[in-house]
Design a protein around this nucleic acid. Structure first.
Lengths: 331, 331
DNA sequence: CAGTTTGGTGGAAGCGCTCCCACGGTCACG
DNA sequence: CGTGACCGTGGGAGCGCTTCCACCAAACTG
């Protein structure tokens, strides 16, 4: 592998000048710059990232941390989209994204990786109450942004989120408005804010309409989990006429369950989901749902992280986006 | 951040001894080792990976290269499983896996990353004819193993594969044996060996039984693509009584299409898939299919790569695993 | 008891790079 | 023509680590 020294020698300049020419080129004469880039080309020179980051103290890569079992990461379009957007936005600044899936016992491993400063910063998505990620990241001193409100004191970390409470209310209102009076919900996991907040919204809307909020069952944001949860919900409350599922994947599972029980959607029972990431449009019938503003959230998360990396901002910031209703046929 | 120097000073030994104590500890007295690990603990020391890899010329990380659009990577359980297994096997050697998804124009970016020696080696999965990945990797001189036979001269690269030709034959034979005589196939992309070989197997088995191999349509290994392909297949050949789909995802799409056309599976038309990664068991009816020996392939790929990294092997090697038939109800 | 192996140790070189700083040359200005 | 500003340049230090090598003491050998 050619080194900077060889490039400099071939170009007839000093190592310092070669370095400057390669990185930005300010304070370098056009002649020198040309000679260097010529030398780079003929030698096929690639800078050694280890040597570079040893002195710059930057690695030019960022972790996308997902504290979830990988089967979920790979089956929920939410993560695919997030990774896609994050990768795209950060690649504009030539930052490499490293996907860190911390399943089960792997958490310690992941923390070791972050502690070792293999990355300049981290974006955390889908964090659970039990992983003390905000604390750990603070202890490590690594710039970070959460996608989805973290379980910690509000003003300690930067995050982006969608207005899940408001969206939960709005979704429930759709059911109320079409005349449903016995409305159940398949909630998300109680240890995740997204699940919890949507449930809160559902409760609030029911309360405002004087309806019972007893028909609640907790799902796990997966399709199979949604089907199971739906079964339990119907067993306990056979006469439901509306269900709010906290994710489209769970709604798809519910749809399967309802079909098996001979219930027609939306005639016998209306169903509204959450996310609108493709699944909703593909089910039979297509799901009425709330959008999950992933693109906006992920983009903003990158912006916030970049600001931290640049040293522009230090104080934690939060940005909240509003989901929108998408009417299809299930409700 | 504490450095090795500080650790050494606190432990009352030289930097050299501290380094030895931290890495393996051979040729270090028990007393010194204890003092060092004590110092490491109190200081919260973590080695600087950049400094380390500058001298060792290793990065202790390995790329999993997937030259596919990310929506496919995240919707096909094949990749999730592969990543899972690779991560697990390599983590035993404390190697970090970096997922490199090279979609569209990102290919150059990915090559730059590999050329920059950010990783010690690469495992490539799902390679297409057009990406000149084998050549590029050879040019870079990066140890690598392909999962799935690459498009290049056989003995240039190491790879693991499953016997797709044989499995294609066997799947087709299942249809023949149950009495099907007009057998179509939804093939994989022609620029991927897995697709091509399964098609070859299908052709061979039909030929041996004196049946026509005209009913062929190319899919893209996705569910939606499978549905579309199935539609085209039926339009061109309305009287098929059996279909071999080159992946379960495509078979699931076909199932949807067949359902919409009022065709019962397997009574009107038998269907056999490929992969058996969960999807097959969840469809209605459950799919008869061929297993895709991912665990074996991924594990072996890791072994082959590790051998290259250790310098144990230099010559390219190939290992082929045999898929097995799983009988369910669709055929 | 001299001569050899052995194990533990520290000094020091050096991995490839960036960046501070000092230096000389050029130019505009008074 | 002297002075200062400015630009492009190269020397050199040093980032944090591993590893070669020389060294010494202790434990062997014949």
């Amino acid at each position: 592998m050619p080194t900077l020294d060889e490039v400099a020698r071939l170009a007839g300049v000093s190592r310092a000048t070669a370095s400057r020419a390669i990185n930005g080129g300010s304070r370098v004469s056009a002649k020198a710059a040309e000679a260097v880039s010529e030398a780079v080309r003929t030698l096929g020179y690639t800078p050694n990232p280890a040597a570079r980051s040893l002195v710059t103290r930057r690695t030019d890569s960022v972790a996308l941390v997902v504290p979830e079992p990988d089967e979920r990461v790979f089956s929920d379009p939410f993560f695919a989209r997030t990774l896609h957007v994050v990768t795209r936005v950060l690649s504009e600044r030539d930052l490499q994204v490293v996907l860190l899936i911390a399943q089960g016992g792997e958490e310690e491993r992941m923390l070791r990786y972050l502690r070792g400063r293999h990355v300049d910063g981290a974006i955390v998505v889908s964090h659970h109450r039990s992983d003390a990620l905000p604390d750990h990241l603070a202890a490590i001193g690594l710039p970070n942004v959460f996608i989805g409100r973290p379980w910690t004191s509000e003003d300690l970390v930067s995050y982006v989120d969608s207005d899940n409470v408001g969206a939960g209310r709005q979704a429930t209102r759709v059911l109320v408005d079409r005349g449903c009076r016995r409305i159940g919900t398949i909630a998300g996991p109680a240890d995740m804010h997204a699940g919890w907040d949507r449930l809160t919204g559902w409760r609030a809307e029911l309360a405002e309409n004087g309806l019972s909020d007893e028909a609640m069952v907790e799902g796990d944001f997966t399709e199979d989990g949604g089907a199971v949860a739906c079964g339990r919900l119907l067993d306990a409350h056979p006469h439901l006429d509306g269900i709010f599922a906290a994710s489209d994947l769970m709604a798809a599972g519910a749809l399967r369950c309802l079909g098996e029980r001979g219930l027609r959607v939306p005639d016998d029972i209306a169903l509204i989901g959450f996310d609108d990431l493709g699944t909703a449009a593909r089910t039979l019938p297509p799901l009425t749902t709330m959008t999950n503003p992933i693109v906006a959230m992920a983009t903003e998360a990158c912006r916030l992280l970049l600001a931290q990396l640049d040293g522009t901002t230090t104080l934690p910031r939060r940005v909240v986006f509003a989901p929108e209703l998408v009417r299809r046929t299930s409700a």
